[in-house]
């Protein structure tokens, strides 16, 4: 009787385990298939339009965007990310250093961390609205590269802060003890051990935040984007950007071909960005552990 009950239980466990394995396989295959399908779909629809002229020329034709290319949008997106990063990366890393190495108040840390996590998940249009109200209207920066870049920095800062803070916390506490016990200062430890040790994770979080910001149209639509430009990059002038250009081409039903072409370029930039960081991380871990 006892043996039979055991056998039934064992069979039930086996069935549960197999069902779970099937579920995990399906989820895994979908996880790979869905992004692959999206990229393939964009590539099939966007590849025919790609050419050197498309990558370098400004938009042309009537309505605007049915001809020419997306050269100024590529430049504009890169400029926006550069400005966003130059504000957000140092600020977030310093804030993470403060919170993980210097701040002694646990309650303050919990408070800061909670709000940073909330901000990291705020929809990007809210950053756009905030950037518009604060930078464009209140500080009178006008719709410009600077206003758009700072708005993107607002959006990236909590993401980089949370990721960097997490990687600092994950860095072995024993490592800190070993360094400080040699009589060196906290700053020396941060410079020589903590930052080199966590550099791959920091790079990853910076790239993820940048790629996410680069693909967002909402924050810059109200603060820094323009429909057409000859490609002049100036802080006080608005710029074209890849996501806002897609938004314009599709929203105004101008050209789906050009929209897919732009989307393919944007996805390509994101893929190459991630691959670049992957390579850097691999090289770094291989060399320095």
């Amino acid at each position: 009787m006892v043996d039979k009950t055991r056998e039934v239980r064992a069979n039930q466990r086996l069935i549960t385990e197999r069902c779970f394995a099937v579920l995990v396989w399906i989820a895994g295959i979908l996880g790979i298939f869905i992004p692959l399908y999206i990229i393939t779909f964009i590539t099939i629809n966007g590849a025919p339009i790609l050419s050197w002229a498309f990558l370098t020329l400004p938009p042309a034709g009537f309505p605007l965007g049915t001809g020419g290319g997306i050269g100024p949008a590529i430049l504009g997106s890169l400029a926006l990310i550069t400005i966003g990063l130059s504000f957000s990366a140092p600020l977030s890393i310093l804030a993470a250093i403060f919170s993980s190495q210097y701040c002694t108040s646990h309650n303050f840390l919990v408070f800061v961390r909670f709000f940073a996590e909330v901000l990291a998940s705020v929809p990007s249009i809210i950053y756009g609205l905030f950037g518009y109200a604060l930078l464009v209207v209140f500080f009178d920066l006008k719709i410009s590269l600077l206003a758009g870049g700072i708005t993107i920095a607002f959006m990236m800062t909590p993401v980089i802060f949370v990721g960097t803070h997490e990687s600092f916390n994950l860095a072995n506490k024993e490592l800190q003890q070993a360094a400080i016990s040699l009589g060196v200062s906290r700053l020396f430890y941060i410079r020589k051990v903590l930052l080199p040790k966590t550099l791959p994770s920091i790079l990853t979080v910076i790239v993820l935040a940048s790629m996410n910001a680069m693909g967002s149209a909402a924050p810059i639509l109200l603060t820094g984007a323009i429909v057409n430009s000859i490609g002049e990059i100036r802080l006080d002038l608005p710029v074209m950007s890849l996501p806002s250009h897609i938004f314009y081409l599709v929203g105004e039903a101008v050209s789906f071909d050009h929209a897919f072409g732009t989307a393919l370029v944007l996805v390509g930039v994101l893929i190459f960005g991630n691959m670049g960081v992957g390579w850097l991380k691999w090289r770094y871990i291989k060399n320095d552990g």
Binding site: Q177, G183, S185
Partner: peptide
Amino acid sequence: AQLIRKKIGIIFQHPITFPA
């Protein structure tokens, strides 16, 4: 404290090397 730690070194149970 820094000078004390310089004068009195410590070796831990698990050898901890720095990323260098």
